[in-house]
């Protein structure tokens, strides 16, 4: 009798599992209620993240999604734009340049820039980081 092939332990994580992992990370890092961590919630404006919280979120995501057979390491600037925006070719007079938009989209495919792109005001960039963008980030990275 043929034996059923065993399930691989390295199967990609399912979306609901990723969502609950991200929710757990945000609840622990920001002290928010799980009910408030909805996909559209903005990390800064809705969940109250301050600058050190971004590093905390990054470290916690790494820990949460690292498995015995696969480390989950996030490089600086991979999840959030960090100091990239101090480059004058990417930002001019407080607005992201064409080149800046190309770089942002290329480096951060997990973020939806469609609303931001209308005015490109750097001060509003943090508004683009939502719970959904973190979920997308983890999903893409686990698939890569």
């Amino acid at each position: 009798m043929p034996t059923k092939p065993q399930e691989s332990p390295t199967l990609p994580m399912a979306r609901p599992e990723i969502e609950s992992g991200v929710r757990e990370v945000l609840c622990d890092a920001l002290g928010v209620d799980a009910d408030d961590v909805v996909p559209a919630a903005r990390i800064k404006s809705d969940l109250g993240a301050e600058s050190i919280d971004y590093l905390d979120i990054m470290f916690r995501l790494e820990k949460r999604f690292t498995t015995p057979d696969r480390p989950f390491k996030i490089a600086q600037g991979e999840l959030f734009p960090e100091n990239m925006l101090s480059d004058p070719t990417l930002v001019e007079n407080g607005k992201v340049t064409d080149k800046g938009m190309t770089v942002l989209k290329e480096r951060m495919p997990h973020v939806d820039f469609s609303t931001f792109e209308k005015d490109r005001n750097v001060a509003n960039l943090s508004e683009t980081f939502t719970v959904k963008s973190l979920i997308e980030f983890v999903e893409r990275k686990l698939k890569a």
Binding site: I52, L55, R60, K63, Q76
Partner: peptide
């Protein structure tokens, strides 16, 4: 130390 990089440590 849980994690440390150039920006900080947890």
């Amino acid at each position: 130390i849980e994690r440390i990089d150039s920006a900080g440590a947890s």
